[in-house]
Nucleic acid binder design. Structure first.
Length: 791
DNA sequence: GCCTTGAAGTTACCG
DNA sequence: ACCGGTAACTTCAAGGCG
């Protein structure tokens, strides 16, 4: 029989000595199925040293491995960095044998290199058969017996390789279950060896809502019930918030202590740690939505309530908020316990809401990159690009380079112009569309088209990068050019197809998320090629891209000036000029004709303000909104009070053009702060721990605060944000920084710090340009006396 | 031993 | 664990001064 299925997840297992690919899918009739393929075998390539005869190579490789670990040796024609190369394909019986066989092969005297021996077996299977997760496939199958403890409608044995059905772009109705756990935590961070799980909240996209609580029972029963609820609802996707880092590890650890098997997978197994630090639950996609929240730069402190609030999923004002360290108090206090219950429900409802926001994009990102849905969020940008490149390499018969450790290398990047300080009226921002990808295409920049300095080649056969002199063959099309061209064409086609549907339709949404996913990958390709960890890394490639970028922007500035436009500022691929439609049109035409790139007006500012600093400006848009770029107001490491002051100052200056009003406003805020009317929450300064506490060379404020938290039993790790408040005291700032959760009263705070080091600098950044002096902003006690002024 | 000053360390932004 | 360019803060240590 033939079935059609949408691929949700993939893995493999050994059945005796046979590796079995297992594809977990949903059929077009809504059945949850497993499609098993036992026909595929792992393999890798051996590159022989030059001048070694192939028969000698084959003879040598025959000794590889014992007990028929190697099934076959085939000489195949591949390309390596664009050059034809004869290699030996070593096909093996068992995936687990590959690492040892690889090392064995590598050590042989006639072997130059071993390639593609580090590609996971199920990824290899998908790449070779053009199978993408989160897409539809058709396959001839026969039903086989379902193991009793597997949770599927049917198990099939594939009688051929599944074939993609590109015209089926829908997404089946997926059963989504959101969950969140609360733990008893009287000593800071909860510890699974002693602290029970007190609440597990659950919400599904079918409307089920449930609190599993430890009220009147041990948490052992909570875990049991959790497993039961999951198995009963049988979700396709399980979502959590930071669940890869917290909920699942905690549940797994805790379940060991209370002796509960967390068999929540469709194969009746426990969740397990897998690649990119994600937790895998066989047969379901376990998605940690925190990974997607991480990609929203506007949200500085990415707590669940902040993200849900920002996305309009659940407003903070309409939910219960409890500080993490207080959870146990709410549990212990019978009168407050209902609040904790409500809090747990608000959390899980928020998570389900986030799933609705993030899953459509996650699904398309998975379908584009080929990384399984449960991994794609956890995979870094570099790996997302790389898996896509590996898919293309296979299509182009190119060998995939090995991942090698390289020392850090630096090279010059983009140009940033000195801004013309002051207020400018009526300014247009023009920028190149997808500048770096288009430069890579235009000059055929790629590791496989690169011509090393020693190699002789006719000048008209190559493009030569300005300043750095790197040369790239004009023909044939390089790897990056082919990939980027395909992506750009593909995105255009998607956008074209979107026009067929109303913007509110399901189809439109899918296509829109898809074109966004394609754009994200295309834009990350330059960054990828300059990443020393990349398989296709080459410094010269990245260096040439930025060199041509500098040339483009310089030429554009020149011509703009010639046309009589005034260039006020520019950064990388943008220029700010006076909004003169005729001249701008001419400039854009010139750019297209002479530089072969597209340039578009991005936005118009009614009024825009620059100080002397680069990468910082603010502007008033025609619709009355205000853009703030680079300034403290958009940074996450300044106190809210200072950011607010700066934002308001900018607004007054740009909209009302009144410096006096702004000063008056700053005075008012300072007075409010002095009289204790500013809430503590506006005084918290958040900073990220970028390394382990022991590695810091200087004791800065957030490190000092982090150490205090640690002493109290809280757990902190790299990447966590520490919120501190500056309190009264003497000595260094670090000594006065106190974790905000320990600050109980407004009387503790160091008012002068917030005035002198937060509010005034933030306001001065703007007002300083208008000749305002710090003392004009300062009010009250600490105004400098004339005497102090002269000493 | 105290104060000034510049380098180093650190974070987070822009495109 | 995607790039370089940039601003701005705090800490730290060297060097000058008394």
């Amino acid at each position: 029989m033939r079935i059609r299925f949408w691929l949700l997840d993939i893995t493999y297992d050994m059945v005796g000595d046979i590796p079995e690919i297992r594809m977990f899918g949903i059929t077009d009739t809504g059945k949850r199925v497993v499609v098993c393929d036992r026909s595929f075998r792992p393999y890798f390539y051996v590159v022989p040293k030059q001048d070694v005869p192939m028969d000698a190579v084959l003879r040598g490789l025959k000794k590889l491995g014992l007990r028929a670990k190697v099934l076959s040796l085939d000489v195949v024609e591949k390309k390596y960095f664009g050059k034809p190369l004869k290699v030996v394909k070593v096909t093996c019986q068992r995936p687990p044998d590959v690492p040892t066989l690889r090392e064995e092969a590598r050590s042989l005297p006639f072997v130059q290199d071993v390639l593609e021996a580090d590609i996971r077996y199920y990824m290899r299977y998908m790449i070779d058969n053009d199978i993408y997760p989160c897409t539809w496939h058709e396959v001839e199958v026969e039903e086989i017996e379902k193991p009793r403890d597997w949770q599927f409608d049917a198990v099939y044995l594939a009688k051929g390789v599944p074939k993609p059905i590109p015209e089926m772009r829908s997404v089946p109705e997926l059963k989504v279950l959101a969950f969140d756990i609360e733990c008893y935590n009287p000593t800071g961070a909860p510890k699974p060896e002693k602290d029970p799980v007190i609440i597990i909240s659950i919400a599904t996209n079918t409307g089920l809502k449930k609190l599993i609580t430890a009220e009147g029972r041990r948490d052992r029963d909570v875990l049991w019930e959790f497993v039961r609820v999951i198995r009963e609802f049988d979700p396709d996707i399980i979502v959590g918030y930071n669940s890869n880092e917290f909920d699942w590890p905690y549940l797994l650890e805790r379940s060991k202590y209370v002796k509960v098997k967390l068999n929540v997978s469709r194969l009746n197994t426990e969740p397990a740690t897998s690649v990119y630090g994600h937790i895998s639950i066989l047969g379901r996609a376990n998605v940690d939505l925190y990974n997607f929240a991480e990609e929203i730069p506007e949200i500085k402190v990415k707590t669940l309530e902040n993200v849900a609030d920002y996305l309009g999923v659940k407003k903070k004002s309409e939910r219960v908020l409890i500080e993490g360290h207080e959870i146990y108090r709410y549990w212990d206090d019978e009168s407050r316990r209902p609040l904790l219950m409500r809090y747990a429900m608000d959390d899980v409802e928020s998570i389900l809401g986030l799933a609705e926001k993030f899953l459509p994009f996650a699904i398309q990102l998975s379908a584009i990159t080929g990384i399984p849905l449960d991994q794609v969020g956890a995979a870094s940008v570099g790996f997302r690009v790389e898996w896509l490149l590996m898919r293309y390499a296979y299509k182009f018969n190119e060998l995939v380079p090995n991942r090698v450790e390289r020392p850090a290398e630096t090279y010059r990047g983009a140009i940033v112009l000195e801004p013309k300080p002051g207020i400018h009226e009526n300014i247009a921002v023009l920028d190149f569309s997808a500048m770096y990808p288009n430069i890579m295409i235009k000059y055929n920049i790629s590791p496989d088209t690169y011509v090393p300095p020693m190699e002789e080649i006719a000048p008209d056969m190559v493009y030569v990068a300005p300043e750095v002199g790197h040369r790239f063959r004009r023909e044939p099309p390089g790897f990056y050019r082919k990939v980027l061209e395909t992506l750009i064409k593909y995105r255009k086609a998607i956008r074209e197809e979107m026009k067929k549907y109303p913007p509110t339709s399901f189809e439109y949404r899918i296509l829109d998320e898809r074109q966004k996913a394609v754009k994200v990958i295309a834009n990350a390709t330059y960054g990828y090629c300059g990443w020393t960890g990349a398989r296709w890394y080459m410094r010269e490639v990245a260096e040439a891209v930025t060199a041509w970028g500098r040339e483009m922007i310089k030429k554009t500035i020149n011509y703009a000036t010639q046309l009589g436009l005034k260039v006020i500022y520019g950064d990388t691929d943008s220029i700010f000029v006076n909004y003169d439609e005729d001249r701008i049109r001419k400039l854009i035409e010139w750019v297209e004709k002479e530089l072969g790139l597209e340039m578009k007006p991005d936005k118009i500012y009614v009024r825009v303000f620059f100080t002397e600093a680069k990468k910082r400006y603010c502007g008033l848009l025609p619709d009355g909104r205000i853009d703030i770029v680079g300034f403290e107001a958009v940074r996450g490491d300044w106190a809210e009070i200072a950011k607010e002051v700066q934002e308001k100052t900018i607004e007054i200056v740009l909209k009302e053009r009144s410096v006096d009003k702004a000063i008056e406003y700053v005075h008012r805020v300072i007075e409010e702060l002095r009289s204790g009317k500013v809430p503590l929450s506006k005084l918290i300064i958040w900073k990220t721990l970028s390394k382990d506490l022991s590695e810091y060379k200087v004791l800065s404020a957030h490190v000092a605060a982090a150490k205090k938290l640690l002493e109290l039993g809280y757990k902190l790790s790299v990447g966590d944000k520490v919120g501190y408040i500056v309190t009264k005291g003497s000595g260094k700032l670090a000594q006065k920084a106190k974790p905000y959760i320990l600050v109980k009263s407004i009387d503790e705070i160091d008012v002068e710090y917030y005035i002198d080091k937060q509010i005034i600098p933030a306001a001065m950044r703007i007002l300083g340009y208008f000749g305002i002096k710090e003392d004009q902003l300062r009010t009250g006690r600490k105004q400098k006396s004339l005497l102090e002024f002269f000493t």
